[in-house]
Amino acid sequence: MENTDKTRTILLTGASGGIGNALAHSLAVRGHSLLLQGRSERVLEQLRSELPEAHRHLVLPADLCDAQQRCELIRTCHSLSSGVDVLINNAGVARFALLADTDDTAMRAILETNLLAPMALTRDLLPLLLRSPRGAVINIGSAFGHIGHPGFSIYGASKSGLHGFTEALRRELGDSRVKVHYLAPRAVDTSLNTDAVVELNRALGNRSDSPTLVAKQCLALLEGGRSARRFMGWPERLFIKINAVLPSLVDSALVKKMPVIRRFAEQNHP
């Protein structure tokens, strides 16, 4: 996996998902060498075969919530002659449910996948990233990490934690060459959305973006000159600012929507 001065070796987690697939294609077109992580080797191999210069990319199937599999992934990364220049923490799970309908197993899966695994991966890859002249970490968050939305309390908590981790890490590595970025999309059109989530967004008038647009914004961060954070969507960016200054206004607005949210949440988890 030899790189030119303009290309990098990038570990992309959740590569087989909607955003991950779009990111893989966009990065490969630019000549980057990809380490494609996901749970299904078959799906990852299919993705690799569709990418430009498929021989440049490696498939690294692993369950990031399994400590042993995660350690094997890290060992493989450390064994590469090219090293690893960029980590994109994209893997994630979402669950639309009221807190009363969320058991410990679901809570643990969301927090481990969306928060603990990215933190552990970043820590264990840091020696390689610090060695790279163009090292970077990109954490894919969510608007729900900044606007507490009913029905997504655990998911929102995991993404809020990811933002806090990213902010602290950006400052911790501020005197190094490693750039630390954060991208918070609004709703995205992927298979993660159940029918109830799609219907909820339609009923509330929530807009969504394509995975391709999210990938474009992620690439803009990667190719930027400094660490940055970016929020996607309007009026979501406005709501995030209002929520930070006058959260009681957002409280009132969302409480009024609770009958609709509760109806679809109960459909999602009868």
Score class of each variant (00 low, 15 high):
Ala143Val: 15
Ala187Cys: 03
Asp195Asn: 15
Gln267Lys: 15
Lys6Asn: 14
Val137Cys: 12
Leu115Trp: 04
Gly17Gln: 04
Ile138Trp: 05
Glu236Gly: 14
Gly233Ala: 12
Leu125Phe: 03
Leu51His: 02
Val137Leu: 06
Glu236Lys: 05
Met119Gln: 10
Phe152Glu: 12
His269Arg: 15
Glu172Ser: 10
Asp66Arg: 08
Met232Leu: 15
Ser16Met: 03
Trp234Gln: 13
Ser158Thr: 04
Pro61Tyr: 10
His32Asn: 13
Pro118Leu: 01
Ser132Gly: 11
Gly145Thr: 11
Val188Phe: 05
Leu204Asn: 11
Asn193Lys: 13
Gly164Phe: 03
Leu23Met: 15
Val214Asp: 11
Leu34Ser: 06
Gly164Pro: 01
Leu219Tyr: 05
Val59Gly: 04
Ala117Cys: 04
Glu223Ile: 01
Thr122Asp: 01
Cys71Asp: 15
Arg30Asn: 05
Val178Leu: 13
Gly145Asn: 05
Leu27Cys: 09
Ala67Glu: 13
Cys218Trp: 02
Ser16Val: 04
Glu112Trp: 01
Ser252Gln: 08
Pro150Gly: 10
Ser49Arg: 10
Lys6Ser: 15
Ile240Thr: 06
Pro185Asn: 09
Gly174Asn: 13
Tyr155Leu: 06
Ala203Trp: 03
Ser191Leu: 09
Glu41Gly: 00
Ala136Lys: 09
Ala22Tyr: 07
Gly145Asp: 08
Glu2Leu: 03
Lys6Glu: 14
Val137His: 05
Ile242Pro: 03
Glu199Pro: 02
Lys241Cys: 12
Thr4Asn: 03
Ala203Pro: 04
Leu116Trp: 06
Arg226Gln: 14
Leu47Gly: 06
Gly83Met: 09
Leu44Ser: 04
Ala265Trp: 13
His269Met: 12
